[in-house]
Each structure stands twice: as structure tokens, then as C-alpha cells.
Amino acid sequence: MTGVLRVLRSVLLTLGLPAVILLAWWFTSAGSTTFYNPPLSAILGTFRETWFSAPLGESRLAVDVVPSVLRLLAGYGIALVAGIALGVAIGSSRALRAFAEPVLEFFRAIPPPVLVPVLMLFLGIGDTMKIVVIAIGCLWPVLLNTVEGVRGLDPVLRDTARAYRLGLVATLRHLVLRGASPQIVTGARQALSIGIILMVISEMFAAKDGLGFSIVQFQRGFAIPEMWSGVILLGVVGVLLSLVFRAVSHAVLRWYLGYRQSQHGGA
């Protein structure tokens, strides 16, 4: 009995406020004739027909949303690989770190959206430009956090790995990457939100397709309910990506959560 109550309580707590907000939006906008603030019922009505209109292969979901997300994943993936590789190299060498640090600090500080107009010069407005923009924007947080993580590796663990004659590959795999993984995940999380921003604005700037492109098209054409449906869809994409990210990072850092707790308790 108490078990049922507890489940009920947690469902109520989780869904309560979102439901209240949605209902409030629904009813306050219901009779709305304001141009910018269409009824929620109208937005949701257009949502299906805007994004999922059959056949699925030709719907906006397939034509606009999927390419956007694929570009994001491509750029993000490149940034992860390059950032971790460079970060391990820079983090492992004191001299290289000192050499690169001021330049990296500067590049990190450049707000990534300014990359869009710069790279448009070189690469036009195609997929390559967008992927490169996302990759470069995501690179810095991954790179700098990896450097921190590698630099912070416990020297005792390094000695242990050397004393037991772990080779380069094993040292990278079992010591460096695992030991730096908490920082790498932090960097990857920062990079993901920057990547989403860049995905959207590179399409808003100049594009032929994509989620950001569609939303701006709707706005310019004063298709307001469609625009709102796009805003909501973009929000949902952001939430879904962060859920996936969280699941992956939990799996990667399972040891770290317990380890940190044990350090806290012991201190």
C-alpha cells in the first residue's frame, strides 16, 4: 500500500508542475487572438502536420531535423576524437603545455558563434562549413578539460603503470583515458551545449535545410504556430540529446561516483 502511494507521489511530483504549466498555457492562450501568441491547441495541431506529415521519408522530420542532428553528431564526434587526442598529447608534456597554453586560452575565449561568418568565407554554406563550425566550437572545451584531466593524473598511478611495464597502448587505455575521464566528460558536456547552439545558428545564418533554417523560415513567413512548433521541437531535441549524454556518461563514470563518495566520507 505504501509502495503504491510512494510511486503515486513521485509521479505526481515529476509530472505535476509540467502539467500545471501546460494547462495554464493551454487555457490562457485558448481564446488568444494575439498574432504572436497563438493558442497552444493551434501549435500542437500544426506540430504533427508540420513535422510528421506522411510519407515519413519526405516529412520535415526526415528532411530537416535528421540532417541537422547528423551534422551535429559528425562535428561533435570529430571534436571529441581530436580534442581528446590533442589533450592527451598536451597534457602529458609540461613543455608542450606551457608552449600551447596562451594560444589555447585565447581560442577558447573567442565566442564560437563568430566562427560561422569566418568559416563561411572558406567553406561556403554547405554541410562542410556547418560540421567544421561545430567541430571547432566543440573542440576547445574537450581539449582544455582533457589537458586538465591528464595533468591531474596521480603520479603514484603513473609510477605503478611504469613499474609494471605497461606499454603505451595499455597506459593510454587503462591509465590516461580512464583517469582523465571525469574531466573529459565535463568537457564533452560543455561541448554538447555549444554544439547545439552552433548547429542552430549555422543554419539560421545560411542554409538550405535544417531545423534552425526551418524555424527562421517560419518566423520570416509569419507562420507563427509552425514557428512555435519548431521551437518546441528544438527544445525536445536538446532534452533528448542531454538524456542520451547523461546515460552514456553515467556508464563511463560509474566508478567515479562511488570513488568520490568514498573520498568525501573518508576525509
Binding site: 596521480d154 603514484v156 598511478l157 609510477d159 605503478t160 613499474a163 609494471y164 611495464r165 605497461l166 606499454g167 595499455a170 587503462h174 591509465l175 580512464r178 583517469g179 575521464s181 566508478w255 567515479y256 570513488y259
Partner: peptide, 28 residues
């Protein structure tokens, strides 16, 4: 040659189980 260091807490890989810690040098 094998080495046991003073800092026991820091010489074991915290992301590996006890058995994996013992096994790693053998794998190598």
C-alpha cells in the same frame, strides 16, 4: 620486478575492480 608503494589508496586503479587491478600487469 614488482613494487608496492606506500600510498596504497593511490597505487590502485580506482576504475578497476580488485581482480582487474591484480590482473592488469599479467595481461601486459
Amino acid at each position: 620486478m614488482a613494487v608496492v608503494l606506500q600510498e596504497y589508496g593511490r597505487s590502485l586503479f580506482p576504475w578497476m575492480s580488485v581482480a582487474q587491478n591484480v590482473e592488469l600487469p599479467l595481461k601486459e
